[in-house]
């Protein structure tokens, strides 16, 4: 069985995000701390668990983006993915989920993957679209926000539970091949083992130029970026910790909350 895991490199959530001079996109400095999207770590871990449970499972990992993303592909290989595929773009710019999904679907359609996994969303763009789009482009069934999966019927069917509101779970069967987007919290992603880390260091990453993949036109256009308005009602309480604590208690007392 072959599994493809889609991973994205994102800027660390704690790092400041700055709109560039033209207002067209955000600025990534050379020192920006990039890492794997956390949801994708859960997706990769789920693939690794399938591999441990069944014989003859290989895991490929794929990422779309500028040269910097190769470090995240290598990280996925350190965690245990067999092969890495990089759909290479020239630069950092606004990319729509449809373009990314079209590129990955175009690669995946000539390769037979029984299961394609992706994170339920990316921490930066927060679209929650790529997995579902890949599924539709490849005419495969898809379940999102997956919190449990089990391969059944000798590899023909996938039993899936997806997380919906208020902790409820929808239970469904998907006919393989299928696409799943994995919800965070489904498992505990592992740290790379030394042997995998050494192997990954030497491994070749298959690089495909995005422009060779016939990616369709953008279906959504970015027309502006801005910082959210800080609502005028907010007051920053200033002073030392002690002064801030006193002021806050005063405010809460005034509002009869304490």
């Amino acid at each position: 069985m072959r599994i493809l895991v889609c991973v994205k490199q994102v800027i660390d959530g704690q790092a400041p995000v700055v709109i560039d001079e033209t207002g067209a996109w955000v600025k990534h400095g050379n020192i920006s701390p990039f890492r794997m999207n956390r949801y994708d770590e859960f997706a990769l871990e789920e693939a690794l668990r399938i591999k441990e449970k069944f014989n003859d499972v290989t895991i490929d990992t794929i990422s779309f983006g500028p040269p910097r993303v190769s470090s995240t592909i290598r990280k996925a290989m350190e965690m245990g993915a067999n092969e890495g595929i990089h759909i290479l773009t020239d630069e950092d710019s606004f990319v729509t989920p449809f373009e990314v999904a079209s590129a990955i679907a175009s690669y995946a359609k000539t390769n037979t993957y029984e299961i394609i996994l992706a994170g339920a969303m990316s921490e930066d763009d927060m679209n929650s679209q790529v997995g579902q789009l890949i599924a539709e482009l490849l005419h495969r069934p898809c379940a999102t926000l997956v919190m449990h999966q089990e391969i059944r019927e000798g590899g023909k069917e996938l039993y899936v539970e997806r997380e919906i509101e208020a902790g409820r779970r929808e239970c469904l069967y998907l006919t393989l091949p299928a696409v799943l987007t994995i919800q965070s919290g489904i498992n505990t992603p592992r740290y790379p083992s030394l042997s995998n880390a050494l192997r990954a260091r030497k491994a070749q990453i298959l690089t495909i130029e995005a422009k060779d993949l016939n990616i369709p036109e953008k279906r959504e256009r970015l027309t502006g970026l801005s910082y959210p308005e800080v609502s005028s009602k907010g007051t920053f309480i200033e002073g030392t910790q002690k002064e801030k604590a006193k002021k806050l208690l005063g405010i809460l007392h005034e509002k009869s909350l304490i």
């Binding site: 959530g13 763009d125 036109e217 279906r219």
Partner: peptide, 16 residues
């Protein structure tokens, strides 16, 4: 819509 954990807001126009 929001991006980057709410640090940035993006304006998007549908092309279709």
């Amino acid at each position: 819509r929001s991006m980057y954990g709410g640090k940035i807001q993006a304006e998007i126009i549908p092309e279709l």
